[in-house]
Write a protein that binds this DNA or RNA. Structure first.
Length: 479
RNA sequence: GCUCCGGUGGUGUAGCCUGGACAAACAUAACGGCCUUUCGAGCCGUUGAUCGCGGGUUCAAAUCCCGCCCGGAGCACCA
C-alpha cells in the first residue's frame, strides 16, 4: 500500500471476444479494490496481435458495454495499438543496455538450446549489432518469423519457459485500428510490463495462468529499476454448463451451432444478461468466490440462487401456459373473476383480473400440457385464484366440474394448485430455454404492459426476461 | 516430462499460513412444514462430511512433516 501513492488497478483484455463469467472475477475484484481505496480503475485493450489473435472491431465497444453493465466503468481507457512508439523506445533502450538482444535463430533451434540452458549464437553479440538488427526489423529487413527481440534472463532458470523470453516480433497482418503502419509488435509480456509501469499500476489482479508471466515481467522492472506492483493471482473460473472459451464460441458461431455471442448456452456476460441474470448477482458471486488462488467451478444452481434473491422482489407474476391444452369446466352457471396479485408481497402493485363467463353451464379454459397429462378422472385440483375442481373424464376431452371449497380447503386436501387461462384470452408467446430450445405458450395479456428487458415470473414455470414484446419472446432464467 | 497449484457433506466453496472453543461453517440441492392462493417463487425447519489414502510429530491435526493416489494450470515469434 505505502509503496504507491494511489491504488490503480487495471483490466487488460484482448478485444477478440466479449467478456465472460471468467473475466468477471478479475474485473469485479480490480474495480472493487480500486473503489475501496478511492483509487482508479483502468481499462487497457491489449490488441497487439494482429495475426494470431486478431482484435475484432466491434469488441472494443462490446467490452466497454460489459463493464458498464457490471457496474465497473473504467476511469481511464487505453489502447496498446496506440502505443507502439513507446514500446519501441523501451526496446531500443534495453538493447542498448545489453539487457535484450535480437535473435535470428530458427525457433526450433533456439528451443533446443534454451531447454539445455545454453545461449544461442546471437546472445553474445555486441549491443551495436543488435541495434542494427533492430533497425532491420523496423525497416522490413526481416520477414515474419525471422527475428525476435528477447529479454536476457537467467538461462539456468528452473522454469525453461522463463529463459530469454521473446518481447517483440514481426507481424505483418493488418490491424483493425492502425492498419499496416507497424510491422513489429510487442508480445504480451513486454507491452504489459511497460504499460503497468507507465500507467502507475499499483496492484495487478489477474488469472493464475499469468503466474509465469509475472516472473518474466519482473526482469524488465529489474533492468529499468522500477518497482513491481503487488500481484494477486486468482484462480481460473469454469462454468458447470456453459461455454467460456472464446475460440470454441467463435467456432460454434461460425458453424451455426450458436445463434451469436449471446446464445443462452454460453457463459458470456452478453448471454447472462439476455437470460435475465442481474449484474448484482454476478458481483455477489465474484465477491463470494473471492480473490483466492484456487480455481472455482461455478454451478448454475449457485448463480440462480443469487439471481433469484435479486430478481424475486422485482418480478411481477403472470400465468404462462406452456403447450396449452383445453380443459372444459361443466356445471358452472355464474361468471367468476379471479383476482391475483402482481406480486404476493407487494399488493400495491395491483392485481390481475381474469374473468370466466360460462355459456350454457360450461366454460373452456387452457392449462399447461404438463398439468393436463397428469390429471386422472376423479382427481381434484385447484385452479389458482378461481376454484377447486374435480376431473370427470380425460377422454375424449378433458372435462371437470367445480367442487365447493376455497384455497384453504384445497390446501387442507393437499390439492395441486395449477395455473390456467380462459380460452381465447392468452397472448401467444415463446420462451427460449437455456439449451436454446423454444417453448410455445400463452401469456395473460397484462404481461404486454411490462417493458422489454424486465424480469417476470411465470408462476410455476420460472423467472424469465422479456426479450421482446411485439412477438412476445422471453428468455428463461431459472426457477 | 518439467514448473506450480488443488483434493472438506449430492454440488460449489470457507476453515489450513498463526494446531486446541471445528462433536467442521456458508450457499445450493434433497426432504418436510407454513403461506388470503406458485404440488416450481417466498418463509421456517430437517437430513447430509470419520476433512483424497497411508504413516509420522503432538496432550491435541482438516490444520504441521513424509510417502502415495487423483485432478487442474502453465511450459507460444497468443493474450
Amino acid at each position: 500500500m505505502d509503496r504507491f501513492d494511489d491504488v490503480r488497478t487495471r483490466f487488460a483484455p484482448n478485444p477478440d471476444g466479449p467478456l465472460h463469467l471468467g473475466n468477471a472475477r478479475p474485473v469485479i475484484l480490480c474495480h472493487e479494490y480500486a473503489k475501496m481505496y478511492d483509487g482508479t480503475f483502468i481499462l487497457r485493450y491489449e490488441d497487439t496481435s494482429p495475426d494470431v489473435k486478431a482484435p475484432i472491431p466491434e469488441m472494443y465497444e462490446a467490452i466497454m458495454e460489459d463493464l458498464r453493465w457490471l457496474g465497473a466503468e473504467p476511469d481511464e481507457v487505453y489502447y496498446q495499438s496506440d502505443r507502439l512508439e513507446l514500446y519501441y523506445r523501451y526496446a531500443r533502450m534495453l538493447l542498448e543496455m545489453g539487457a535484450a538482444y535480437v535473435c535470428t535463430c530458427p525457433p526450433e533451434r533456439f528451443k533446443e538450446l534454451y531447454m539445455r540452458g545454453e545461449p544461442c549464437p546471437c546472445r553474445g553479440l555486441s549491443p551495436q549489432v543488435h541495434i542494427d538488427r533492430w533497425e532491420g526489423m523496423l525497416g522490413g529487413l526481416y520477414r515474419k518469423g525471422e527475428a525476435v527481440v528477447r529479454i536476457k534472463t537467467d538461462l539456468r532458470h528452473p522454469n525453461p519457459a522463463v529463459r530469454d523470453w521473446p518481447a517483440l516480433r514481426v507481424a505483418t497482418a493488418p490491424h483493425p485500428r492502425v492498419g499496416t503502419r507497424y510491422r513489429v509488435w510487442p508480445l504480451y509480456n513486454f507491452s504489459c510490463a511497460i504499460d503497468d509501469h507507465e500507467m502507475g499500476i499499483s496492484h495487478i489482479i489477474r488469472g493464475k495462468e499469468h503466474e509465469v508471466n509475472t516472473v518474466r515481467q519482473r526482469y524488465i522492472y529489474k533492468y529499468l529499476g522500477w518497482d513491481y506492483p503487488e500481484v494477486l493471482s486468482v484462480g481460473r473460473l469454469s462454468l458447470e454448463a456453459g461455454v467460456l472459451s472464446k475460440s470454441k464460441i467463435r467456432a460454434g458461431i461460425e458453424a451455426g451451432t450458436y445463434i451469436g455471442w449471446d446464445d443462452p448456452r454460453l457463459g458470456t456476460l452478453m448471454a447472462l444478461r439476455r437470460r435475465g441474470i442481474q449484474p448484482e448477482a454476478v458481483r455477489m458471486l465474484m465477491l463470494e468466490i473471492g480473490p483466492k488462488g484456487v480455481e472455482a467451478r461455478i454451478s448454475w444452481d449457485n448463480i440462480a440462487a443469487l439471481n433469484r434473491r435479486v430478481v424475486e422482489p422485482r418480478a411481477n407474476r403472470y400465468f404462462f401456459i406452456e403447450n396449452p391444452k383445453p380443459l372444459r369446466i361443466v356445471g358452472l352457471n355464474k361468471p367468476l373473476e379471479a383476482k391475483l396479485p402482481l406480486h404476493p408481497d407487494h399488493p400495491e402493485r395491483g392485481v390481475r383480473r381474469l374473468r370466466v363467463e360460462p355459456e350454457d353451464g360450461a366454460v373452456d379454459l387452457q392449462i399447461a400440457e404438463r398439468d393436463a397429462e397428469r390429471l386422472r378422472p376423479g382427481e381434484r385440483v385447484r385452479l389458482m385464484g378461481l376454484m377447486n375442481i374435480e376431473v370427470r373424464e380425460t377422454e375424449p376431452n378433458l372435462e371437470a366440474e367445480p367442487i365447493p371449497g376455497d384455497h384453504l380447503e384445497a390446501r387442507r386436501m393437499g390439492l395441486a394448485f395449477i395455473h390456467w387461462l380462459p380460452k381465447g384470452l392468452g397472448v401467444e408467446a415463446e420462451v427460449v430455454m437455456p439449451d436454446a430450445s423454444r417453448i410455445k405458450g400463452l401469456v395473460e395479456p397484462l404481461c404486454l404492459e411490462e417493458e422489454a428487458g424486465s424480469i417476470v415470473q411465470f408462476e410455476r414455470f420460472g423467472f424469465a426476461r422479456i426479450d421482446s414484446l411485439k412477438p412476445l419472446v422471453a428468455y428463461y432464467a431459472h426457477r
